[in-house]
Design a protein around this nucleic acid. Sequence first.
DNA 1: ACGATAATACAATAATTGTTGAAATATTGC
DNA 2: GCAATATTTCAACAATTATTGTATTATCGT
Lengths: 123, 123
Amino acid sequence: MDKLAATSVFESLSSSVRLDVFRLLVKKGLDGMVAGEIATTLGVPPTNLSFHLKALTQARLLTVEQEGRYQRYRANIALMLDLIAYLTEECCSGNPQQCVDLRAASNCSASVLQPISTNSTKS
Amino acid sequence: MDKLAATSVFESLSSSVRLDVFRLLVKKGLDGMVAGEIATTLGVPPTNLSFHLKALTQARLLTVEQEGRYQRYRANIALMLDLIAYLTEECCSGNPQQCVDLRAASNCSASVLQPISTNSTKS
DNA sequence: ACGATAATACAATAATTGTTGAAATATTGC
DNA sequence: GCAATATTTCAACAATTATTGTATTATCGT
């Protein structure tokens, strides 16, 4: 992750429409959605949505896969995690206790960030 | 964290100057820096830096504290963690295994996100 | 092959954002 | 109080980004 990649990601998510698109696709996970579905769900004109999908894809926040005449988009969640790593690089000049204190001040409990447990989803 | 707060944060970090400022202050942790130090360190004209500091502060990514005639800025790391939570809300429609798989595809090892261990910093 | 549909590209315009220098405000040290 | 310093505000201009309608490309079903 270099600075240009990071600012591209932030720039992408700074638009209300693009943030809606990305969050919608994060929810959909590996299923993703085709462009038309996204446009209908969010109530955005196809032309305008296309503009924003292009921006998100160029920032690598979305992947596209052609499915006949449809384009299926998926969120690149790994990139988002890389971005977090970039942002917190050298956090507190490597003082872990300070980091822990800062973390305690947030409500972050994102499941994608929880420690991996090997038997939590076994049936 | 609502949508407006989230887009404000992303908008703030989408500028090269503002990203540099934020990352610099993340490194500094609780010490923070005064405006002039930041300007000198990054080689940004004070007038322009002030513009960007204002934007970052309005987005709540920075806090300001007056110190005589200096203004000391600090990164609001908790807000950033809240943002991560917001972004990954309902990730994979609550399918934890899919989340874990996606996570495995990233290089994220941010120390601020590591599980809290109670004795790692004892001397 | 043909009409219908999915999606993108293009062009024009509207709106927002970034940068700079000069002026203003506030605090310090003498 | 006064000169020096730290920072911000303001105004002007430059640059970038967003939105919309129309046109284009490609695929599907028959």
